[in-house]
Write a protein that binds this DNA or RNA. Structure first.
Length: 224
DNA sequence: TAGGCCATCTGGTCCT
DNA sequence: AGGACCAGATGGCCTA
């Protein structure tokens, strides 16, 4: 089981709101009472047990039939619990069907573990308070936060492109940079630093934006 | 104690 | 036929 990280309520709400503000969303508000309750919001200094009792669901673990010796009993009990025809059904159940069911269960369990691993991977790249004393994000919170984070990043990228275009226009540049001010992220031409650095004589890249040496740059002021 | 979150089991459906 | 995916049911753990 994954370690318990936790996120203080305040930190989480702050993060959510900043994402929401940037992305024009209101995740925190939308959560309403849940947000107030807090995903993992602990009381003051509230820590969770470092290692939560490994889920040892009586019904689940025992009935999974892979770790327990009295799997049949558990299975029978569950069938009985499941309602009409359950017990009789189980009694009639041939051994092959039973083992087939067990393998299907195992496969489903594996699938869910993979899904949880992927969610852990997502949590790892979402900026929030990672710490042993902070409970990890719930699944739903992880997905919602990730969505808002992506939207926020997209918006920031958009603004940066606009700024670069504006700067390029302002400088009246004939440089190749100006030719594709809105090129997709990842194209070096969009970013004067890389283009300028390649072309300019100054190792400090000071000429990247203006195309002319800077009076403030020690490299530009150096005598050759 | 209620409510949230979670793991697991299970049967159904769809796809290969 | 077998596997993947999905949703409902169930029960355990934890917090307010």
């Amino acid at each position: 089981m994954a370690e318990l990280k936790s996120l203080s309520g305040d930190a989480y709400l702050a993060l959510s709101h900043s994402y929401a503000a940037a992305a024009g969303l209101a995740y925190g508000a939308a959560r309403g009472p849940e947000a107030a309750r807090g995903y993992g919001a602990q009381g003051p200094g509230g820590d969770l047990p470092a290692a939560p009792a490994p889920r040892a669901p009586a019904a689940a673990a025992e009935s999974s039939g892979e770790q327990s010796g009295d799997e049949d009993d558990a299975f029978e009990q569950r069938r009985r619990r499941r309602g009409p025809g359950g017990a009789a059904d189980a009694r009639r159940r041939p051994r092959e069907q039973r083992s087939l069911r067990l393998s299907i269960n195992a496969r489903e369990r594996r699938r869910m573990h993979d899904l949880n691993d992927a969610l852990d991977g997502l949590r790892a790249v979402i900026p929030y308070a990672h710490s042993p004393s902070v409970r990890k994000l719930s699944k739903i919170a992880t997905l919602l936060l990730a969505k808002n984070y992506i939207l926020m990043q997209a918006q920031a990228l958009d603004e940066m492109r606009r700024l670069v275009a504006y700067l390029n226009q302002g400088q009246g540049l004939a440089a190749p940079v100006a030719a594709t001010p809105l090129a997709p992220f990842g194209q070096a031409a969009v970013y004067p630093f890389s283009a300028g650095a390649a072309l300019g004589p100054c190792p400090d890249k000071c000429a990247a934006f203006s195309g002319s040496p800077s009076a403030l740059c020690k490299h530009c002021n150096e005598k050759p």
